[in-house]
Every structure is written in C-alpha cells, then in structure tokens.
Deep mutational scan, measured.
Amino acid sequence: GFPHNFQETTYLKPTFCDNCAGFLWGVIKQGYRCKDCGMNCHKQCKDLVVFECKK
C-alpha cells in the first residue's frame, strides 16, 4: 500500500469521514481528501487512518 496524499478540502455537498463515519462539519475546509484515492476524513482522523491508499 501507499501513504495517503491528503489535502485540505472544501466540500460543496454533505460529506462523511471515511475513517470514523462522522459528518464533516463546516462551510469551508471541512476536512481532508486524498488526491490519489479520494478518501475523505477529518483533520484529527487523517493521522489515524488504518486503510492504505489504493492509488
């Protein structure tokens, strides 16, 4: 597997964290999205993600 390539992201529609399944709250920059596989997560979850990037 590969490490994720997370970038701070502004979501335009309701989005949930792929790590904890919690809602990504806020208006802008609600969470992080992996540029390579599209995984979404909270800032506090991005260092805890157990799934490797599937590129």
Rank of each mutant, 00 (worst) to 15 (best):
G31A: 10
P3L: 13
G26M: 05
C20N: 00
G38C: 10
C20Q: 00
C17P: 00
F23P: 04
K43I: 15
K35F: 07
L48F: 13
W25S: 06
C53N: 15
K43G: 11
L48S: 14
Y11Q: 03
C37F: 00
G26C: 02
F16H: 08
K54F: 07
C45Q: 00
F23K: 05
T9A: 05
H4M: 05
V27N: 04
F51V: 12
E52W: 06
L24E: 04
F2A: 06
H4D: 02
C53W: 10
G38P: 10
C45H: 03
A21N: 14
F23D: 04
A21C: 13
G26I: 00
Y32C: 11
C53S: 11
F51C: 11
N19T: 12
V27L: 11
C53P: 09
K46V: 06
D36H: 08
N19A: 14
D47E: 12
T15C: 05
G22A: 10
N5C: 07
N40P: 08
T10F: 12
T9G: 06
K46G: 13
F16A: 10
G26P: 03
G22F: 04
R33M: 14
L48G: 14
L24F: 13
F2Y: 12
F6T: 03
E52C: 09
G31F: 07
C53L: 13
F6H: 05
N5F: 07
P14H: 02
Q30A: 02
T10R: 03
G26A: 07
C17R: 01
G26S: 04
C17N: 00
F51P: 11
E52R: 09
Q44R: 14
W25V: 10
Q30R: 03
V27R: 02
I28E: 05
W25K: 07
D18T: 15
H4F: 01
C53Y: 07
C37W: 02
F6G: 02
K54Y: 06
I28Q: 03
N19Y: 09
A21P: 09
D36L: 11
C53I: 05
E8W: 08
C17Q: 01
Q7A: 12
K54H: 02
E8H: 01
F51D: 12
G31V: 03
G1R: 07
T10K: 03
N5Y: 03
C53M: 10
L48K: 13
Q30W: 02
R33L: 10
W25P: 11
K29R: 10
G26R: 02
G22T: 05
K43L: 11
Q30S: 03
C20F: 00
